[in-house]
Design a protein around this nucleic acid. Structure first.
Lengths: 93, 93
DNA sequence: CTGCATCCGGAATGATACTG
DNA sequence: CAGTATCATTCCGGATGCAG
């Protein structure tokens, strides 16, 4: 399998890159991501789990039954790809 | 909509980026892409059309009822994003 | 023989109600 | 707040057919 295909296996689904982008600058809670992104709650739960298993992010417990989703080094390494894609999208207007 | 979401609207489907990657270095014919990529024939037809409408590639008629699919400037501008993603995928082994 | 279109089952995604 | 359960919808992929 090509390197590109390997990457898309992990972050190629509809919401994966958008979730990661949302976490690039700071950890976020579940509800923050859901509201800001407009992602269906079951899809968010599904992909947060997938991305955690892929080592892209980790779930840090806060107080009061809340968690902070934080990118790992591997997740932060997606910044270049995300910014390149966003730049391409911006040029398409 | 964010720039990233705009980009993913065009190249976020399962095969879009792989097709573009295959065309980065040289134009390819339909059958070449299909065999090398292992993409189902109906999906290839669908996404070649979508990508053509999005201005990412053009279809140049060759002789003998074949066509050469060639990236436009806009399509070639995806190289940075594709290489960044491939690099990330390669680092994940 | 290459480049598709169509049909159809299964997988992915989405809306929404409900729970710890 | 942070999810799960359920069901509808939409997308994807393999088989097949057919035209240039």
């Amino acid at each position: 399998m090509s390197d590109l295909a390997a990457a898309l296996e992990v972050v190629g689904a509809r919401w994966a890159l958008r979730i990661v982008e949302r976490l690039l600058d700071a950890p976020q809670r579940y509800g923050d991501v859901q509201r800001d992104l407009g992602v269906p709650t079951n899809m968010l739960a599904t992909w947060l789990r997938e991305l955690e298993e892929a080592g892209v992010l980790v779930r840090l417990p806060l107080r009061h039954n809340t968690r902070a989703y934080t990118l790992t080094e591997r997740g932060l390494a997606l910044r270049e790809a995300i910014e390149a894609l966003a730049k391409w999208g911006a040029a398409g207007e």
